[in-house]
């Protein structure tokens, strides 16, 4: 592979000075405008999570903050009452964590093995197996509610975090299998043949040759699964209740069905707690996500 210098074409750097300036100005102005537009809900919620309730009530949601205090965050985390349960969001946060982490790991692990087997080992009806697994990608989640309710009831996992882990693992395998299989297809078959002649079997080839090539697609699977499962709402709401709910389902209680005073500031902090982990995962891993989706395995 020869080193080549690649100069990207920059349309903003052509034409007269005045044109260059106008072009750049327009582009950056639009970018700033849309960035502000998309960031504004987060900023407003974030501001309100520090403001005393009386200020919010008196001056409205959008207003310059005065008398900031971190106490609403503490309250939201540990003592705030949600749906009659006064432990704050900490309980639901840990519910979600207990659901998301195992389901992400399991679905990714199954997906990598599936993808490897389906791309590198021919067996009878392998394309059918792959087709059926990936059918799950296109199947609306609502359609699976009743079958899942039946299954969870039969195996005694109704209203448990373990039940949600099972649901999310199985649902997620469709995606992770699709991602990994398409990634591994780009790995030359000759590598597998060479390893077979060298005497390696299915698992040794997987462990020593495929897995070391997998980090880009593993990152994609983990980010996709983690954010998807963390943010998932439907299964959590349908299959769990009370203290066993994931955080996304629990904070629905804010939507006004309750009586009495609304604690906008504490609720704002709670919402940020619920949104923070996927946000962090995207901020920290987004670069690898794009890289993993677009990269081939080897060259």
């Amino acid at each position: 592979m020869a080193d080549t210098t690649h100069q990207a074409f920059d349309p903003l750097a052509t034409g007269s000075r005045a044109r260059q300036f106008r072009a750049k100005f327009t582009v950056y102005a639009l970018l700033v405008f849309f960035a502000l537009l998309y960031l504004s809900p987060l900023v407003i919620i974030f501001m309100n999570s520090f403001r005393p309730l009386e200020h919010i009530v008196r001056e409205g949601f959008i207003s310059s903050p005065r008398a900031l205090s971190p106490q609403y965050w503490i309250e939201a985390w540990s003592t705030f009452c949600i749906g009659g349960n006064c432990e704050g969001v900490s309980r639901y946060f840990s519910n979600t964590l207990m659901m998301t982490v195992p389901a992400t790991i399991l679905s990714t692990a199954f997906g990598v093995v599936n993808g490897y087997a389906l791309s590198k080992w021919r067996f009878k009806y392998d394309t059918w197996v792959f087709g059926l697994i990936t059918l799950g990608v296109f199947l609306p989640a609502q359609m699976t509610l009743l079958p899942w309710a039946f299954v969870l009831g039969k195996i005694g996992l109704s209203n448990t975090i373990a039940g949600l882990v099972l649901v999310h693992t199985v649902q997620g395998i469709s995606f992770t299998t699709l991602f990994c299989r398409n990634y591994f297809v780009a790995v030359p078959d000759d590598l597998i043949k060479a390893a077979r002649i060298d005497g390696a079997g299915f698992w040794r080839i997987f462990r020593r040759i495929m897995l070391p090539l997998s980090p880009p697609i593993l990152i994609v699977c983990v980010i996709w699964q983690f954010t998807g499962i963390w943010n998932e709402f439907l299964f959590g709401t349908v299959f769990t209740s009370g203290a066993n709910q994931p955080i996304t389902s629990a904070i629905v209680a804010f939507s006004g069905s309750g009586t009495g005073e609304r604690h906008y500031n504490v609720e704002a902090a709670s919402v940020i707690f619920a949104a923070l982990p996927p946000l962090l995962v995207y901020v920290l891993g987004g670069k690898y996500f794009v890289r993993g989706l677009t990269s081939g395995a080897v060259k």
């Binding site: 000759d190 590598l191 090539l213 080897v298």
Partner: peptide, 10 residues
């Protein structure tokens, strides 16, 4: 092999 099939991560 024609492609050499060297294990790329080793």
């Amino acid at each position: 092999f024609q492609s050499y099939a060297l294990y790329p991560t080793m």
